[in-house]
């Protein structure tokens, strides 16, 4: 293994894309089926999802070697990356239309536009929610199609990423529901409170499910994976990632929020701290998974690259500039 081909921007993008998808999906479900008629309380969560998509796209583009021509991603039919980019754009456009439909509550200058869009607002959110679900699944499926990496090429990864994305989306909705630009009436306040109560239970279920899938995936790799996957999983279980995995992800990212949700009632621990911890855990999960890009080694390969990239070699290669060879 020479180095990580995908760097932190990609991990952040996977987190932010999943988070945005989770927010849109949950908002669409609640607005369409659970408590219809209080669309304005989801304006702030949708705004946050838009910001996440925007930041995620910026990270995605700056990670490219040629950021100026990112539109080339749409030039073939088969690539899975193209589908991810398409889902992102469609979800973002419909989320923006939904947000515009409620923007007049904060800025009356948008009133004509909002009144035009308001009748279709629920439809916009359903479309955005559907493509949000697609984004969540895509982030995991994209990694799991790369079968060269044993730790990624497992059906558990899309499941884990999707559950984690809904769980982080749930946390973000809890933190932001009913905020600006919604004009809070007594009815919408009650609706938001009802949503919060339901999300409280939903997130408990999701955190437990995430814990189960995460432990199943990592521990089954550590016990029964092939050589490469086992080596990667052992790094998580008792190697260099063990502290981050057990303390950071499992304890602080999942178990502590779970205890706060169950025992915290309506305290700040349950309504503010636990969602923030869930968000941090989700972000850490993406970073750890993206960095676990172990490929099966060709015998002798590691030895070769360790020599080329030794301290002497490193100094030699970094002092050389492209285009200045003298041959």
């Amino acid at each position: 293994m020479k180095h990580h081909y995908w760097e932190p921007p990609i991990a952040l993008y996977l987190f932010l894309g999943g988070l945005a998808g989770g927010i849109l999906f949950l908002s669409a479900i609640f607005n369409s089926f659970v408590i219809p008629g209080y669309g304005e309380i989801f304006a702030m969560p949708v705004l946050i999802s838009l910001v996440c998509v925007a930041i995620g796209c910026v990270f995605l583009i700056i990670d490219l070697g040629q950021p100026g021509v990112f539109w080339r991603v749409w030039t073939t039919a088969t690539s899975i990356i193209k589908w991810g980019a398409t889902f992102l754009v469609i979800a973002a456009v419909f989320a923006l239309l939904y947000l515009l439909a409620y923007l007049d509550q904060a800025w009356p200058i948008f009133a004509p536009l909002s009144q035009l869009l308001l009748p279709a607002a629920d439809f916009f959110l359903i479309v955005a929610g559907f493509f949000g679900l697609c984004i969540m699944m895509y982030t995991g499926i994209m990694l799991s199609t790369l079968k060269a990496h044993a730790f990624w090429a497992t059906p558990a990864l899309p499941v884990l990423f999707t559950i984690s994305a809904i769980s982080t989306g749930c946390a973000a909705v809890v933190l932001s529901i009913g905020g600006w630009p919604a004009q809070i009436t007594l009815e919408s306040l009650l609706a938001a409170a009802l949503v919060l109560e339901i999300l409280h239970i939903v997130d408990i279920v999701l955190v437990i499910a995430e814990l189960i899938v995460l432990l199943t995936m990592v521990l089954s790799f550590a016990g029964a994976g092939n050589v490469t996957a086992k080596k990667a999983a052992m790094r998580w279980v008792k190697g260099s990632y063990a502290l981050l995995f057990w303390v950071g992800m499992v304890f602080i990212g999942l178990l502590v929020p779970l205890m706060m949700y169950i025992g915290g009632g309506h305290s700040a621990a349950s309504t503010v701290v636990a969602p923030i911890l869930v968000l941090c855990g989700g972000c850490l999960l993406r970073f750890m998974v993206v960095n676990t890009d172990d490929r099966a080694d060709i015998p002798g390969e590691i030895r070769y690259y360790n020599r080329v990239l030794s301290s002497n070699g490193q100094e030699f290669t970094t002092k050389w500039e492209y285009g200045k060879n003298l041959f």
Binding site: Y5, W6, D63, L64, G65, Q66, V69, F70, R72, V73, S79, I81, L146, A148, H149, D293
Partner: peptide
């Protein structure tokens, strides 16, 4: 584009 998906 250098999206590096083929590299992975």
């Amino acid at each position: 584009l250098s999206c590096k998906v083929c590299v992975n």
